[in-house]
């Protein structure tokens, strides 16, 4: 198992803020919008250097999406930012009509996704956002795994012409990816090559998958770990190549098991190569208050649960 070490922990939303800081300096067309959550989205450095390119929308997310769509007419690249729940479920119809159907170059950037925002509880812990966004024709859906990858993804999506949903979060987690990585939309990252089981993970679950890989190794199981940061378009080739070798799959995501990464992978498998698949995901429920670690444990998303799922998948081969 390839060794992943870290010297620092940070939240992925700070990676987003750092990416925006860079974009503010590099791309004069980038405009940031926020619905009264500037501090939570780590936008201060961007706003400080580019006050004229920041649009405070107040607590009016629907209007923010519409204003973003309008800004693209005239060549601006709007980054509309708020919590994932208010960036998707609250404004689904606005995104559907004014952004996706109209094919507008809007970047919907959503923090506090999933269970790990923690203590705020289920009203804010959206677990359906990946499903909603990936169902929209033409929408690119990205869920990076650590600070560095989120920063790289933020910078990369400015160069992609079309609507993007970028999902990140609040908990402080290890930084384990390359600070100078080139982020390629739609291209999976091979975290660890293995032969016994493919663990396909997105977002915060990639670090859990790495820990699971080490635990499995101690038991003599050689896990292949793949980071799918782009859920749509999905890197089908990387997935199929992996299962050819391993013959079974575990998908891991901080999302409802219905409609997320697991279902996207299952579609690929059903169509191309039937192998056993186990889901590590929230079992069609809402979340609750708690610390991120407590919630991952209770809802079956931590490394220990990935290990169990891997063993189940291998047993079904």
């Amino acid at each position: 198992m390839k060794k992943y070490t870290f010297t620092e922990k940070k939240d992925t939303r700070s990676g987003f803020g750092a990416g925006m800081h860079v974009l503010g300096q590099q791309n004069p067309n980038v405009v940031a919008l926020c619905a009264d959550l500037v501090g939570s989205l780590k936008l201060e450095p961007f706003i400080k250097e580019n006050p004229e390119r920041f649009i405070q929308c107040g607590i009016s997310e629907a209007n923010m999406i519409g204003v973003s769509a309008g800004l693209t007419i005239g060549g601006k690249i709007p980054f509309a930012t708020t919590f994932a729940n208010f960036a998707t479920g609250r404004v689904y119809d606005q995104i559907r009509q004014s952004v996706a159907y109209s094919n507008k170059n809007v970047k919907i950037c959503a923090s506090h996704a999933g269970l790990t925002l923690g203590e705020d509880g289920a009203t804010h812990q959206i677990l359906e956002d990946i499903g909603m966004m990936k169902m929209l024709p033409g929408m690119t859906v990205i869920n990076p795994c650590d600070y560095n990858q989120t920063k790289a993804a933020t910078i990369a999506i400015a160069d992609h012409d079309g609507p993007v949903y970028l999902r990140f979060g609040r908990p402080v987690i290890p930084i384990f990816t390359d600070p100078d990585q080139k982020f390629e939309i739609g291209k999976a990252w091979m975290v660890n090559e293995g032969t016994d089981v493919s663990i396909i993970a997105t977002g915060h679950m990639v670090w859990e998958a790495i820990q699971a890989g080490e635990m499995l190794e101690a038991e003599g199981i050689n896990a292949e770990i793949i980071n799918i940061h782009t859920i749509k378009p999905l890197d089908e080739e990387a997935i199929l190549k992996s299962v050819e070798k391993t013959g079974c799959v575990v998908t891991a995501e901080e999302h409802n098991r219905i409609g997320g990464l697991g279902d996207s992978v299952a579609q690929v498998l059903v169509k191309n190569k039937l192998v056993p698949q186990e889901y590590v995901a929230v079992n069609d429920s809402f979340g609750e208050s708690g610390t991120p670690a407590q919630l991952l444990e209770k809802y079956g998303l931590d490394a220990k649960h990935i290990v169990e799922a891997a063993k189940r998948a291998i047993a079904r081969k």
Binding site: R53, V67, A69, L71, T72, I73, Q97, S98
Partner: peptide, 25 residues
């Protein structure tokens, strides 16, 4: 045509964005 419309209530927001882009440009 520069934006889809039909689901009501969205056009004023879009127009405000386009007007803001004009100011920035």
């Amino acid at each position: 045509i520069r934006i889809a419309s039909g689901s009501l209530g969205q056009g004023l927001s879009v127009a405000l964005g386009a007007a803001t882009a004009k100011k920035l440009n």
